[in-house]
Nucleic acid binder design. Sequence first.
DNA 1: TCTGGGGTCCTAGGACCC
DNA 2: TCTGGGGTCCTAGGACCC
Length: 428
Amino acid sequence: MLGNLNSQKVYAMIDCNSFYCSCERLFRPEYRKRPVIVLSNNDGCAVARTQEAKDLGIAMGAPYFKIRELCNKHGVGVFSSNFSLYTNISDRVMNILAGFGVEIEVYSVDEAWIDITNVTKDYLSYGRMIKERVEREVGIPVGVGIAPTKTMAKLANHVAKKSVRSGGVVDLSHPTHWIAARERVKIEDVWGIGRRSAEKLNALGIKSAEDFVQYQNDRLIQKILTKTGLQRKKELDGIHCFDLELITQKKKVIRSSRTFGSSVYEKEAMKEAIASHVSAAAEKLRRQKSVCSVVAVFFRTSPFKNFPQFYAHEGLRLSSPTQDTRRLIKHALELVEGMYRGGFEYKKAGIELHEIVDESQAQLSLLDANDSPLSAKLMGTMDSINFWHGPKTLQSMACGVDNKAWKMLREHKSPRYTTSWYELPKVV
DNA sequence: TCTGGGGTCCTAGGACCC
DNA sequence: TCTGGGGTCCTAGGACCC
């Protein structure tokens, strides 16, 4: 059903350009015109690239050891990821967007939709104003896509990024420009159509977003792409299927995992790593005021290596829900005890918390001790110490005291310019 | 030497029950 | 001894996102 015209919405999708790289550039003006990349944890691979870096042929996810030469040769600015900086800059951008007085869905660290249906009649000018203000007040360049559905606003945003002529703002609020825009966008660049689905659609002769919309057999589309895939197709033709999600949903699964800085060969080191991951995940769990009933542990060797491989992943149900780091560590370490096999070179480990529910609606167990009031107090104190004095100021002994062996490598990390008094930028 | 991390949603298929 | 259909719940795995 199309719904009547009065209920027609207009959304703007705002997306920061090469977000992590743009954050690094803020404090390093000498890189404004030069290629910049940001590396994943452990300086493993490139996870963000500026246009100049893309033009050099640096692919998303390219392992750093394979592109190091190229980077040196072309004077590419190379940075380890600095998430406290990016989150902080992201907050500033989102605050400005929220300040326009409309509904907002923060979709990721660098993207948001806002509902601009009733704030203006001239959507294009409004989009330009949004772009101009974010760039002036935070210094991060953004693209703006405007359209009656979320999926089409994403598409408009994509066109805005590619088209120099658009000046970074594309308005598809009116159907006149839909066909031309959809013809420019490859099917694999449509939001929600990944590589696998694109291959299947290509086989049906669907190459562009426009081909997709024109394809008549919706039953087949649903079969290939599932229900949500068909909804995306409709949204590309202006039919509203997805509302803005205004309330941040609590996580249903919390995961903490990491590749080791250097390989782990000992069970004790593995236990320290696992305990550290539990600590991080449990802190997240408490921050969203939840408890969990299942903890799972996994670890693995490197799939890129020739040597004997081992992968283990096991979960354990607790007798009652908890948010107590100590209890979670205890059970996670029991799992490690049972799962660990010596004689392998371990490269990665992590934990997951499942069956997460609100702490207020946790089932009371009469047989087993729930987290006691004392536990809540202890955890609360620990969280606040770590908040004010920095992560890991206070932690369980199980996490180890000197775990250099598996700690991650971050050789190119920029200072925490905005979140640490000790690392403020200096004006000289 | 060196290849990320953290999520969500959907479906198929098995187990089980009536 | 044999045959059926329909419903629900759970889990594993695929696919996608940034």
